[in-house]
Design a protein around this nucleic acid. Structure first.
Lengths: 230, 230
DNA sequence: CCAAAAGTGTTATGACTACACCCATGA
DNA sequence: TCATGGGTGTAGTCATAACACTTTTGG
């Protein structure tokens, strides 16, 4: 999170907004970060973030800050939590509304400035490598993501438009950190009616071509039954 | 939400904290509010709230604001959402971190100053009776409460220490707005192992005395399986 | 002895889990 | 023709949902 230096002298807390962006890269769940530039965050990674300005809605702040810090726009997001511990930034009292966001790696790579952006596998994230309380925030966001994956059709936002069932299953496996049974996974995911065959196949591999699927609904949808357990 | 008038002149959004307090009174789910005193909220109800001060954590702000506005302390709470639309308070840009809280009516009635506090059944809450976006916030909180009731043992926080199974069932019925089957409810709630018999019975009614139960765990606990559906 | 709420089981249906082999393709 | 990932079905177990009568008490 990059912050302008002068506002800490006001007598009220400063309101910031940070974003935990998840993507899947090389089979691992990763969080997107930038290199800290101020005195406190020097040499560490920080979440993309910034200060919310007067008269700006949180949505607007999200869009602006995301674009300024990463070059991304139009990705799936959801408000996560507001962190307000006065000690979380040693420069002053910063209350941060944190969003988490999902993006598929191909969209990410095509929109961002690779030289400024880090994509860190979540197992490599710790308070040694991330400034402020950002490692803790990412852990919190990961839990929320697991939950959302289990109870909603949110997975579509971390996948390309069309995908194979194996690719979809591996999203779940990577995020749940658990292997799933292929037959049960397919049975259940198809029974939910969330996805449909596109009629196309993925011919890029040198093996039997896999059928491609896409999500039926693009909006977030709560499931009556838990999506995936196994 | 009561706010001090002078801070709106600063060039950054003001951070406030509001609380949706739920309780069950006379068989209805109710939200606690106070009478608006400033020019914008005159004649309407507002959620208990206030401005977060510099150097104060959100937890500390919650405790202070809750006590100042209602006299309550030590009740169950959880952060709900942060509302930041610049138009939500016509006096200036107020970003409000909203918590929801649960309290049983007997504790509520014994701690609050009845003459200053309103307890409104949630079906009577609308933008006509509540100032700002508070009616909308309460609706949002109600949804979260339903969810929590379904997936956690949070119900204990809206009940007295010991309770009959019929009382517990009626909590679920009031919040879900649906009647539940008595035998299935009991079977399921007992199978979950969340509650235990106290050995006492409720002799206050003039009918067959009901057994009293209490919760085993006092901390919030996620259930692996959905708690109550039916 | 009556009114009212407390308390109690069974059955049918659907979901979940575990498990192993054949298929289609490009190299 | 072979190596690789794609694709498929069954059976046992467990949770869910629907349903009605007897018990206990105070008045």
């Amino acid at each position: 999170m990059e912050r302008t230096p002068n506002i800490f002298e006001l007598s009220i807390p400063v309101l910031a907004l940070d974003v935990v962006i998840f993507t899947i890269y090389q089979g691992a769940l990763c969080a997107v970060s930038v290199v800290g530039s101020n005195i406190v965050a020097k040499g560490k990674s920080v979440l993309p973030g910034g200060v919310v300005t007067n008269g700006e809605s949180l949505e607007e702040a999200f869009d602006r800050i995301l674009l300024q810090t990463t070059g991304l726009k139009g990705i799936y997001k959801e408000q996560l939590y507001t962190f307000g511990n006065p000690g979380r930034d040693s420069r002053g009292h910063v209350v941060s509304v944190v969003y988490y966001a999902l993006v598929d790696y191909l969209s990410l790579a095509s929109q961002i400035d690779i030289s400024r952006i880090l994509t860190t596998p979540i197992h490599m994230i710790s308070t040694d490598t991330f400034a402020y309380d950002h490692a803790e925030i990412i852990t919190y966001a990961k839990k929320r993501l697991e939950w959302k994956l289990e109870y909603t059709n949110v997975a579509q936002n971390i996948l390309h438009e069309s995908f194979t069932l194996t690719a979809l299953q591996s999203i779940y496996e990577v995020i749940f950190e658990r292997v799933l049974d292929k037959r049960n996974f397919r049975k259940k995911i198809l029974a939910l009616g969330l996805i449909q065959e596109t009629g196309e196949t993925d011919k890029s591999s040198s093996r039997r071509p896999a059928r491609l699927y896409s999500f039926v609904d693009t909006e977030l949808k709560m499931l009556e039954k838990r999506e995936i357990t196994m």
